[in-house]
């Protein structure tokens, strides 16, 4: 078993690392949960990437009716593509346009649409991002390399345990003839959080 050997992090993160591994040991010894169940979730977490979110965005770019459904009932719209939200929280998709740019933060913790994007990046969970995004979003965006024109309104959406947000980024110009699969390649994790625009086609 993995916990027969000290993880390398043991030295730095002694207390909590040891305690959570002790808790796992007790729960499995008592038959409350099984080692296989834990390993199964670890494996799934490793496999989750923003690719599913990117496919949702690409579909919305090529299909206006789908986009309308996505913006009004995201849960059922992503289910059309075979994606099931693993959390109870609602998913809301917010659309970036020439007039408004959305930025997602979770000031209280780290709520994030992990079912579609995988685990959030470390910076999303950082105090600096959580504290600054709601008061100086343009400065934050500049730090990420995104300079918005002054006429573009910035809308910061604050996730909660009840509603998680996904940004529908603007479709880059010059992509009119691209197929859906190729379009999905332009959709980055950061563009779906709102700290970046979608990639430009090569």
């Amino acid at each position: 078993m993995a916990d027969e050997h000290p993880p390398l992090e043991h030295v730095e993160r002694g207390l909590r690392a040891t305690r959570i591994l002790a808790i796992r040991r007790l729960l499995t010894d008592k038959g409350v949960i099984t080692v296989a169940e834990v390993d199964d979730i670890i494996e799934r977490a490793r496999e989750r990437t923003p690719a599913d979110g990117a496919k949702v965005v690409a579909r919305a770019w090529v299909d206006d009716a789908y986009k309308a459904r996505l913006l009004t009932n995201a849960r059922s719209a992503v289910a059309e593509l075979g994606y099931r939200l693993s959390h109870d929280a609602e998913l809301a998709v917010v659309e970036n346009t020439a007039d408004v740019h959305h930025l997602v933060v979770c000031t209280l913790c780290s709520c994030y649409p992990t079912s579609l994007l995988g685990p959030p990046p470390d910076w999303y969970k950082s105090f600096a991002y959580r504290q600054r995004a709601v008061v100086e979003p343009r400065a934050v965006l500049r730090e990420f390399g995104l300079a918005l024109a002054g006429r573009v309104r910035v809308a910061v959406v604050d996730s909660t345990a009840d509603v998680r947000y996904l940004v529908l980024p603007r479709r880059p110009s010059g992509t009119e003839n691209m197929a859906e699969d190729a379009l999905a390649e332009l959709v980055t994790r950061d563009s779906m959080i709102g700290v970046a625009a979608a990639r430009l086609p090569r």
Binding site: P7, L21, I41, A45, T107, Q131
Partner: peptide, 30 residues
């Protein structure tokens, strides 16, 4: 945390999850 004063830049370095972090995340799921 929203709006608390902060003049630090946002650290965008990612760390790879340690084993115990994977376990912690997975235990919540299980």
């Amino acid at each position: 945390r929203g709006g608390l004063p902060c003049d630090e830049p946002i650290d965008r370095a990612e760390h790879e999850w340690a084993d115990w972090e994977h376990v912690t995340n997975a235990l919540v799921g299980v």
